[in-house]
Design a protein around this nucleic acid. Structure first.
Lengths: 147, 147
DNA sequence: CTTAGACCCGTACCTCACTACGGAAGCAAT
DNA sequence: ATTGCTTCCGTAGTGAGGTACGGGTCTAAG
């Protein structure tokens, strides 16, 4: 027998997890959470499993997983699919590392431009603007799509 | 007298700059580029200034500026507004640095999880999943919105 | 008993940077 | 002259992750 402790409405659930009511409903529509049966003509209630699910989703999002990916992770939860989960984690790790190094490139370029602007110059001439006009790409010649 | 050299159609312009025709037209609608007058019933033509503008936009985007911000940068181009430009650059630099350190946090957490999964364990238990269930936040206790 | 505040539900709207669609008209080569 | 690629122009759709609205129903407090 399951004890039903800490029964909550959607509003309490949402507040407890630190998300909006609409967000919970959105996750339900996305299939990331189930909608509990509603008692005849009444109000649905949520338990700690639902709360745990929300925590799982937010933790995964924090790590950079998209909602689609989170859906995938969730299918791995019921079973001993640790290898698959690790695989997903490794892929995400790779993509995070790529993002970091791209941002570090940007950081170097931007820092250089700002430095050049700070050290006095002709006043009718702005090194930052000049670089933007010529196309920046200082650090690495790296053809790519911006998106 | 202005020599009109390298006169291009929108298609040639776009291809030269490495963007789509629709993208150029989109930038015009956004007010980032002007639309040249069109000769009676004919086809508009674009010169090197238009190309330079496109380069400017793409270089700025590469540095992480949004199209709105680029619009702002462009208003600073005609004049000696180097200080304002530098200010914008510094703000962007700050935000880039914030993104980097957030991603580095994620990298540490994710790496740790993946490592734990790789070193053998009970097989009916997945450290990665367990952490997601409990809410990750290893590295820093840092309340924040995911978006 | 009335009223305030949640909840239920579907639908529409938001941001950002594009991308696609469709019909008319122009231009270049065959 | 015909084919076939561009251009022109407005409008609409995409994806991600929600947020907002509005009308109806429930529940708890006074």
């Amino acid at each position: 027998m399951l004890k039903k402790r800490n029964v909550m409405t959607i509003g309490t659930l949402a507040k407890t997890a630190g998300v909006g009511v609409e967000t919970v409903r959105y996750y339900q529509r996305r299939g990331l959470m189930s909608e509990p049966e509603k008692p005849y003509g009444g109000i649905r209630h949520y338990d700690e499993q639902a709360l745990a699910r929300l925590h799982f989703i937010r933790a995964s999002q924090w790590l950079g997983f998209s909602l689609d990916e989170i859906g995938e992770l969730l299918t791995l939860q019921d079973g001993a699919h640790c290898d698959e989960a690790r695989e997903l984690g490794e892929q995400k790790l790779t993509s995070v590392r790529r993002k970091i190094s791209r941002l570090q490139q940007i950081e170097r370029a931007l820092n250089e431009l700002v430095q050049k602007c700070s050290s006095g110059h002709g006043d009718v001439y702005c090194p930052l603007m000049a670089s933007l006009n010529d196309g920046v790409e200082d650090a690495t010649t790296d053809k790519h799509k911006v998106r």
